[in-house]
Simulated assay, not measured.
Amino acid sequence: MKNELKSAVILCNGQPPDRAQIVHSLKKADLFIAADGGGNTARAMNISPDIVIGDLDSYKPEKTDPWKVIERPNQNFNDLEKALDYAHSKGIADVVVYGATGLRLDHTVKNLSVLKQYHTLFDSIYFRDLYCDVKLIDSPFRENFSLHTEVSLFPLSGIVRGVTSRGLKYNLSNDTLENGIFDGSSNLTVAPRVEITFDSGDLLFFINHKTDSKSNQ
């Protein structure tokens, strides 16, 4: 573990990532945290976290495990929250989270709520799985992408008002995205730079991998 910690990878107990995908991220990370059962996934992948943290209801310890284990039994917080709290306490600025999606849908939805809760505590935090990256974006949002990258917008808070975009095939112009009414799924980038502004709400931005898990490492 480096003395100055800037970036972290967190591995949760959802759908396991592609091993090459997470190993690539770990090469640039200062801290690797397994959230409870994520420790089992890490062991199965033959990669070692710096710590395993959580209520430990899913983690199955083995005597040969070389990493530190921290038990946090508080049931008012899920294991991802405990891992993010630990990362924040270490001064981490940038976080990529694997295993926060897939398998149990209720866990995925809860973790998206956690993403909103911790969004302002880090310079960047996003979930990555076999299919996409997802993050909450602030207004104004500006980022460069390869042409024809598939992206989606989704109103996490229920309603996001005044959404305007540039650089997408189907641009929005002061539109309102609302759950069950109108969202921004399955769009494409048609310019090198995408710009999005909005007036209010919590806007999720999905960046879909072009072919498979190895296409967006």
Score class of each variant (00 low, 15 high):
Ile137Leu: 06
Tyr118Arg: 01
Asp85Pro: 07
Ile125Ala: 08
Asp106Phe: 12
Lys116Ala: 09
Ile92Gly: 02
Leu105Thr: 07
Leu112Asp: 02
Ile92Trp: 01
Asp123Trp: 14
Ile137Cys: 11
Ser113Cys: 09
Tyr118Leu: 06
Gly102Ala: 09
Lys110Gln: 14
Lys90Gln: 14
Ala100His: 03
Asp133Asn: 15
Arg128Asp: 13
Tyr118Cys: 03
Ile137Met: 10
Phe127Leu: 02
Phe122Gly: 09
Gln75Ala: 12
Tyr86Arg: 10
Gly99Asn: 05
Asp138Pro: 07
Leu136Tyr: 08
Leu112Gly: 08
Gly102Asn: 06
Thr120Phe: 00
Pro73Tyr: 03
Ser139Tyr: 15
Phe122Glu: 13
Asp123Asn: 15
Ala93Phe: 04
Lys90Arg: 15
Glu81Gly: 00
Leu112Ser: 05
Lys135Glu: 07
Asp94Phe: 06
Val96Gln: 03
Leu112Asn: 06
Leu130Phe: 09
Lys110Glu: 12
Lys82Gly: 08
Tyr118Thr: 01
Ala100Thr: 04
Ser139Arg: 14
Arg142Cys: 12
Val97Phe: 00
Tyr118Asp: 01
Gly102Gln: 10
Cys132Trp: 12
Leu103Glu: 15
Ser139Gly: 14
Lys135Val: 00
Ile125Trp: 06
Ala93Thr: 15
Arg104Asn: 09
Asp133Arg: 15
Val134Arg: 02
Asn111Val: 03
Ser139Ala: 15
Thr120Asn: 10
Arg104Glu: 06
Asp79Asn: 11
Thr108Tyr: 00
Ile137Val: 10
Tyr118Phe: 10
Val96Met: 01
Leu103Val: 15
Tyr98Met: 05
Cys132Val: 04
Arg104Tyr: 13
Phe122Ala: 06
Ile92Ser: 06
Phe141Val: 07
Phe141Ser: 11
His119Val: 09
Gly91Asp: 14
Gln117Asp: 12
Val96Thr: 06
Tyr98Ala: 02
Val96Pro: 00
Cys132Gly: 07
Glu143Pro: 04
Ser113Val: 08
His107Met: 09
His88Phe: 09
Val95Met: 05
Gly99Ser: 03
Leu121Asp: 02
Asn76Gln: 15
Asp129Lys: 02
His88Cys: 11
Ala100Val: 02
Gln75Phe: 12
Glu81Ser: 01
Asn74Lys: 05
Ala87Asn: 04
Ile125Gln: 04
Ala93Asn: 10
Arg104Gly: 07
Ala83Arg: 03
Asp106Gln: 08
Leu112Met: 10
Asn111Arg: 03
Arg142Asn: 13
Asp129Ala: 09
